[in-house]
Amino acid sequence: MKILTPFKRIFRFYFDGFSNLSSWGRSIWIIILIKLFILFAIIRVFFMPDILKKDYKTDNERSRHVLENLTTSVSVTSELNSKL
């Protein structure tokens, strides 16, 4: 039971702090919560997906996709061989 005491004190510290917020403190927390909701529940979910994670299941597929994007039909190996 003694081990719970520090956690209780920490909980109490935060609980008291949030319970006794001043009016400006409350306004700020409302803004933070609305902002986090907009960021993570709206923007992230509906507008900003991680394309590679969404469209490809494995890292191998993702690397192949990016490799495809980074390369085209350019083929200048003969030039490379002559210069190396």
Binding site: I28, I31, K35, L39, R44, P49, D50
Partner: peptide
Amino acid sequence: FAIGVATGIIMEFEFGT
């Protein structure tokens, strides 16, 4: 701090999208 916090996370979203 409170108004600015987490505004940078959008840039991380943009990296992925």
